[in-house]
Design a protein around this nucleic acid. Structure first.
Lengths: 341, 341
DNA sequence: ATATTTATAGAAATCGATTTCGATTAGATT
DNA sequence: AATCTAATCGAAATCGATTTCTATAAATAT
């Protein structure tokens, strides 16, 4: 592999001048520049990041800390789309994405160490299980941090309008005549889970509907197995007096609920209307297609990238708090007017 | 950030000795080692990869060249799962994954240059649109290469048993009494597409069935729009004399076909049986659930990682040809016995 | 013709590691 | 006590870039 010295020698100039050409300094003669560029091409020379990083202290690397616990990684229908948009935006600015993990063989490397090892410029948190202390530690050594889904102190976070989106969905059910509306939801350990449930409680209050524990349930984690069990037990518990509508606070459990209902001979939406949250791909494939609150995942990723770039360029950002991305209620076939009893 | 010299100074030893401790040399006194390790911990020292790479010529970085054209990236249901398994295996061995892209702002960087820039140790090709020349060029500068889906000269490739899997699916349809079996498929530009269609042709020959152009069609690319158009025109063209079964050579078009049929009042599987290929998540959500040939994506990724590790360790590998991963026919609800006419 | 700017290029130090090879020391052997 | 060995450690070169500051040459002004 050709180095800067090879280019210097062959072109007849010094390494310093070659470097200047590649870093677009002014003060290099046009002919010199051209000659250097030509020999660089001839030799197939590209500056090496490792060597650059040593002196510039910049790796042009953005770490992503991903939910490792679910073993889903890229396959996660929500995060993967956010990440794709984030990656694409950051790449346009010259950054590469790398995944920060903790399974280093030689040493018991934690996230922080991995960041140091790679000289990471910035980190995107896309995990709901990361220890707060670890996030703070990473932020504290000067690495620029942005988060999606989870809020850490002093780290800007992008979130959908969970509250407003949920409220709108519930009002829609109300407008269809539903008065007994159940809730089956995400773990309350996640911020989104909390916000969506807050909306449910506020909705009940505003419309003078009773808070009925029997028709409210939560998962404790995001595993499909548990979701299936919760959906089954939910139906079992209420089989004699089912709600006419259920707000399921994320799509996968909504679909599971819907399938379980149908398998028990309960019609969706005729017997019971269902609204989910997320608008992941399968909502369109399920029968009936699921009415849901769409999250604009690309926008979340793009916004995260914008903030990250501002941080990296030391531009002032609006706040270190929460940035909201709008949601949208998507009407499909899993909801209809409540039957008059 | 603490450097090796900080550790050296504070511990009272030289940088050379500190380095030896971190690189598990023999020939360092146990007490010395302990003292150095302790001060390293106190100072929060982690060796910096950029500096290591400069002398060791090893980046511990594996590049992934991904299908950029579809703009799907991580969201791709097939590649993302392969990639997840590959990444996980490589990380266990101490490598990090990075995405090789071609949109560098400062220079018109191509894949090869990006690899040089990052000093990549190995590359996984997971793209069906990469120019062969670019792949060869990367391989030629000594970067270890492995590919999935697409075969490049001298680069080991992992592929599912497309032929056998397709053949088995077709034989299954035959065993259900189907004699007029259509084919709606992937672009013939992809190796998988070719192999699946080869199986179809061989099947027709072996069972003495006619090759009927009217019930055979291919997409030219993988866009959902085109798939919808093809599915519609396929049905339109054959509406007076539909096949009793169709082998759709990837799941998404199978689902599209199925939905289109149902929307026209044609029952799946009663009027027409459908088998797909891939077993992506949505096959289970669609109604009826899709019978399909499952690809073991994790196994593909794991195998790719194994070969990559062997290459990186300069172990001899079995071949530079194609490694096959078995498929499995998954029976669901989109197939049934042909009606007796 | 001389003095003064202005452009341009390079010498050398530096970044943070690794690695070779020689120096030193302690321990064993005679 | 002298010699030899083995263990341990460090000086210094090196990797491939960047960046500062100085030197030189050319252009301009006096």
């Amino acid at each position: 592999m050709a180095t800067i010295y090879d280019v210097a020698e062959k072109s007849g100039f010094s390494a310093a001048t070659v470097s200047k050409v590649f870093n677009r300094y002014q003060g290099v003669n046009a002919k010199t520049k051209e000659k250097i560029l030509i020999t660089a091409r001839e030799l197939g020379y590209t500056p090496t990041q490792s060597a650059q990083a040593l002196v510039t202290k910049k790796s042009w690397l953005i770490g992503v800390i991903f939910q490792e616990d679910l073993k889903q990684g890229f396959v996660h229908p929500h995060f993967s789309e956010i990440l794709e948009a984030f990656k694409s935006e950051m790449e346009k600015a010259g950054y590469d994405i790398i995944f920060i993990n903790r399974n280093f063989p030689n040493q018991n490397m934690r996230y922080l160490e991995h960041c140091r090892y790679r000289n990471i410029d910035g980190v995107l948190f896309a995990s709901s299980t990361l220890d707060i202390k670890e996030a703070i530690a990473i932020n504290n050594i000067g690495i620029k941090c942005v988060s999606v889904e989870t809020k850490y102190p002093k780290i800007p976070t992008i979130l959908s309008t969970n509250y407003e989106g949920s409220f709108e969905a519930l009002k829609y059910l109300y407008s269809l005549g539903h008065r007994k509306i159940g809730y089956l939801g995400s773990p309350l350990s996640s911020l989104s889970g909390i916000e969506r449930f807050e909306a449910y409680k506020a909705f009940l209050k505003e419309f003078n509907l009773p808070y009925d524990k029997k028709i409210i349930d939560f998962c404790e984690n995001y595993t499909p197995q548990e979701e299936l069990e919760r959906a089954s037990s939910y139906i079992e518990r209420n089989k004699n007096d089912l709600p006419t509508a259920i707000f399921a606070s994320h799509d996968r459990i909504a679909i599971t609920l819907q399938k379980t209902l149908i398998s028990k001979g309960i019609s969706v939406p005729n017997d019971i209307s269902i609204i989910g949250f997320d608008d992941i791909e399968i909502t369109n494939v399920s029968t009936p297609a699921l009415t849901t609150v769409k999250q604009f995942r690309s926008n979340i990723g793009i916004k995260a990238a914008e903030i990250m770039k501002d941080l990296l360029n030391n531009k002032p950002i609006e706040s270190k708090g929460i940035f909201r991305i709008n949601t949208q209620l998507i009407l499909r076939d899993s909801t209809c007017r409540a039957r008059i009893i």
